[in-house]
Write a protein that binds this DNA or RNA. Structure first.
Lengths: 221, 221
DNA sequence: CTCATGGTTCGACGCTAATCGAACCATCCC
DNA sequence: GGGATGGTTCGATTAGCGTCGAACCATGAG
């Protein structure tokens, strides 16, 4: 009676149909707003707010405040593992949800302020973390500097300023983080400089050349 | 809203503190009676009966009726996986529960009707399944007959009768299945015949000789 | 500044489900 | 057979929580 309550408390969070629908919608790693999640659950935003507060409080979700929006995502892979363990009991698919731009080129790669966003930007950020180019605090590791040197980026080349070197920026089409900060800008600059990709005039679209896309992928291993 | 309910339904079963305590008590693979589980949950047997009916209905638990007792155990490893996924959120230990005979020799190995029970019996049964001596329907495989031949058991030696060749019998100290049926009897007979162990006079205790215990373990790989 | 929109807080309502007492059925032991 | 024990069913009570309306705060656009 003393050991059960804790797992029961977590299970209770998933036990509500609305909350479980919200969690399933986040299974692919995206981050959604409170209003979108309310729509997913088919409830009003007051109720959604109450649900989300509970999930954040118990660290099942984490929230990123961005302007007047709050983006919610799963707190980690252990949450996804829990949901998968539940799905075993009755095979479910993750629910589709149209979101973001229709324009496929925009979705694939584009400029976000001054750095790379879209699928390619998310891929860059994910790999840098996976491969250990970045540490947990978003500090660049020795391995990271070695790989960045391949692109022609030296540690001394990056002007120091108030702006952080690395920052995680939330992507509005992918709804996942990508690399921002001074390094984010520098990497995009180099990618354009070595002609792996080019920027369409008067547009935010970044177009990778076939050969450049291949090299980009190789560079990330 | 159509995909969430199913996982919510399962989560709701674990969400009750009493039910989760019951499930945790079964995490080690034992089977417990309804009354014992009522005690684990600190509730009356009526309430426990209601909880257990729900868990069986949803195939989270399975029940073995044995005389006037009903033994409940987890329906499979996927249930244990679910509980483990929940325990990640707050490290819990599996609760201890004293059960069964105090007598250590009885607990280790004894005769159950005419076959081997206790730790050694459970070990025999588990290994036969793990190593593929027995198929899913408790049929003896070719590999099984090969290994049984080492003990001097030929397929033709086992007299055919109404009694099933292999049966899973629930152990009252280990609370887990062990091998019964004609094969269960035959194996115990051979173990005694080759003097790996002997039966204490006027007792159900089976005592393994040190050398016999070693060979028994080797035989099971 | 004003309006629109995203999000939260508060309070009241209503439904679901856990709980136990009482009665009942089944099995085992003597 | 009769008594004891394990387990289930039924019904009534109670408590918790999901829900939404209404009001409120914060941010962004014009």
């Amino acid at each position: 009676m003393r050991e059960g309550p804790e797992i029961a408390r977590i299970a209770a969070l998933v036990a509500d149909p609305v909350r479980s629908a919200m969690l399933l919608a986040l299974m692919d790693g995206r981050a959604l707003t409170a209003t979108e999640l309310a729509s997913v659950g088919g409830i009003t935003k007051q109720t959604a707010s109450s649900h989300l507060a509970k999930l954040v409080e118990s660290e099942v979700l984490v929230a990123d405040a961005q302007g007047r929006h709050r983006y919610f995502r799963l707190a980690g892979s252990h949450v996804a593992a829990l949901l998968e363990a539940l799905m075993v009991f009755s095979s479910d698919a993750v629910p589709p949800l149209r979101t973001g731009p229709k324009d496929l080129t925009l979705r694939k790669a584009r400029i976000c302020y001054d750095h790379l966003a879209g699928e390619k930007g998310v891929m860059l950020y994910d790999r840098m973390l996976e491969e250990g180019w970045l540490g947990r605090d978003l500090d660049v590791t020795d391995k990271g500097w070695t790989k960045l040197a391949v692109l022609g980026l030296q540690q001394g080349d990056l002007p120091s300023s108030n702006r952080p070197l690395c920052r995680a920026c939330l992507d509005w089409s992918q709804r996942r983080h990508h690399l921002a900060g001074r390094l984010g800008k520098a990497v995009l600059d180099r990618i354009l400089a070595v002609s792996w990709a080019r920027r369409l005039p008067a547009s935010r679209v970044i177009v990778f050349h076939p050969e450049g896309e291949r090299r980009f992928g190789e560079w990330l291993r």
